[in-house]
C-alpha cells in the first residue's frame, strides 16, 4: 500500500513538472507568434510591445500558479480520500469482529450458565465425599476424588474465562497509578515464565518526572491480562528469547479524543500468519497443541481490556515477531 502511494506521488510530481514545461514552451512559442502579429497588424495601436508582453506574461504566470495550486489541492484531497478509505476498511474489520464477538459471547454465556448450574452437585457435595474418604482411610479413592475435585476446579476456571469473554462476569474497578500496578502485574506473570525467557521493561512515558497516571483497573483482571499476554508471547518464541514491554501516551484508535496509556508487548517469536490474524481473538481458536492451550488466552485479554474501557491492537510479521498494543484510558484519580 505504501509503495503504491509513493509511486503515485512520483507520477503526480512528474505531471506537475511536465505541465510547467509545456506552459513555458507555449509561452515562448506564443511570444514568437505575438511578435509576428505585432509587426503585421495594426490592432496594437496605442500599446507599446513591452506593455503587451508584460500583460500577457502576468496572465500566464497567474494561470500557471492557479493550475499548480489546483493540482496540489487535488493531491491533498486524494491523500485524505485514501486515508478515509483505509480507516473505513479498518472500521469494517473491527465492526465484523465486534459483531462476531457478540454472537459468540451470547453462545458462550448460555453454555457457561448451563454448565455452572450442572456443576453445582459436584462442587457442593464433592467436599463431603472427599472428607468422608479421608476419614475412612481409603487412600486410593481419596486420591481419585481429589483428582475429580481438581479437575472440577480447573473447569470452573475455564468457565470463568468464558464468562469474562462473554462480558457476563461483573468486575469491580478502582483508579490506580499505572506505574504501581503495572510492575506488580508484570512481575506476577514473569515469575512463572521459564528462565530462558527475558522480559525487558522500559517505562518511557513522557510525563513530568513520572507523575502518577491513573487508569481504572480490576486488579485480578489486570493481572490476568499480563499473565495471558506474557505466556502467549513466551509460547510464540518456543519459550526462548526476549519480550519487550514499553509504555507510551497515545489516543485510543477508535476514539481519538480519549487519551490512553498504551502498553506494547513485543516478542521475537514466529509471528502470526495474516490468514489467521482475524481469528486470534476468537474463543477456542488455538495454534497450540490441545494439551497446551484452551484457546481462551487472547479472547480473555481482548474482553478484559475492552471491559477496562480500552482496546487491543495487533501488529505481526511472520518470522519476526508480534507486537500487541493494549490501550487503557487515563482517568482522574477520583473518577472510578
Amino acid at each position: 500500500m505504501i509503495k503504491r502511494g509513493r509511486k503515485r506521488d512520483f507520477y503526480l510530481e512528474l505531471l506537475i513538472a511536465a505541465s510547467i514545461f509545456i506552459v513555458c514552451s507555449a509561452f515562448l512559442i506564443f511570444t514568437d507568434f505575438f511578435e509576428w502579429w505585432f509587426k503585421y497588424t495594426r490592432a496594437h495601436e496605442g500599446w507599446e510591445l513591452d506593455e503587451l508582453f508584460s500583460l500577457v506574461f502576468a496572465l500566464l504566470i497567474a494561470g500557471s500558479v492557479s493550475a499548480v495550486r489546483h493540482v496540489l489541492m487535488v493531491r491533498r484531497l486524494m491523500k485524505r480520500l485514501y486515508q478515509a478509505n483505509r480507516d473505513l476498511k479498518a472500521h469494517k474489520v473491527e465492526r465484523i469482529r465486534h459483531e462476531k464477538m457478540i454472537a459468540l459471547g451470547s453462545l458462550a454465556s448460555g453454555l457457561a450458565h448451563e454448565i455452572n448450574n450442572s456443576m453445582q452437585p459436584v462442587v457442593g457435595l464433592g467436599g463431603f465425599i472427599l472428607e468422608g474418604l479421608k476419614e475412612s482411610g481409603n487412600e486410593t479413592h481419596y486420591e481419585y476424588m481429589k483428582t475429580i475435585m481438581n479437575s472440577t476446579e480447573h473447569s470452573q476456571g475455564i468457565i470463568n474465562n468464558v464468562l469474562i469473554f462473554a462480558r457476563e462476569k461483573s468486575l469491580e474497578y478502582e483508579a490506580l497509578d499505572a506505574f504501581k500496578i503495572l510492575p506488580d502485574a508484570i512481575k506476577f506473570s514473569t515469575d512463572v515464565l521459564p528462565s530462558s525467557v527475558v522480559v525487558n521493561v522500559s517505562f518511557d512515558v513522557e510525563t513530568d518526572n513520572h507523575e502518577a497516571i491513573y487508569i481504572n483497573v480490576n486488579r485480578t483482571g489486570f493481572y490476568q491480562i499480563f499473565y495471558n499476554m506474557l505466556n502467549n508471547a513466551s509460547a510464540a518464541m518456543d519459550n526462548q528469547g526476549a519480550i519487550d514491554i514499553s509504555l507510551a501516551l497515545d489516543v485510543i484508535p477508535e476514539a481519538p479524543h480519549e487519551v490512553a496509556l498504551r502498553v506494547d508487548i513485543k516478542d521475537t517469536g514466529c509471528g502470526i500468519d495474516p490468514d489467521i490474524q482475524s481469528k486470534i481473538f476468537d474463543p477456542f481458536f488455538s495454534t497450540k497443541d490441545i494439551s497446551e492451550g484452551t484457546g481462551l488466552g487472547l479472547p480473555t485479554v481482548y474482553a478484559l481490556v475492552e471491559q477496562h474501557g480500552g482496546c487491543t491492537v495487533v501488529n505481526s510479521i511472520v518470522g519476526k515477531g508480534t507486537v500487541f498494543s493494549l490501550y487503557f484510558p487515563i482517568v482522574e484519580k477520583s473518577k472510578e
Binding site: M119, Q120, G124, L125, G127, F128, Q156, S170
Partner: peptide, 21 residues
C-alpha cells in the same frame, strides 16, 4: 442480575457453583 435481585429486595445472593463453605 445482582442489581435486579437487589431492587426486588433479595436478602442474599450466591452464584453457582458454590462450595459448601
Amino acid at each position: 442480575s445482582v442489581l435486579v435481585a437487589k431492587n426486588a429486595d433479595v436478602t442474599g445472593y450466591i452464584c453457582k457453583p458454590f462450595s459448601f463453605e
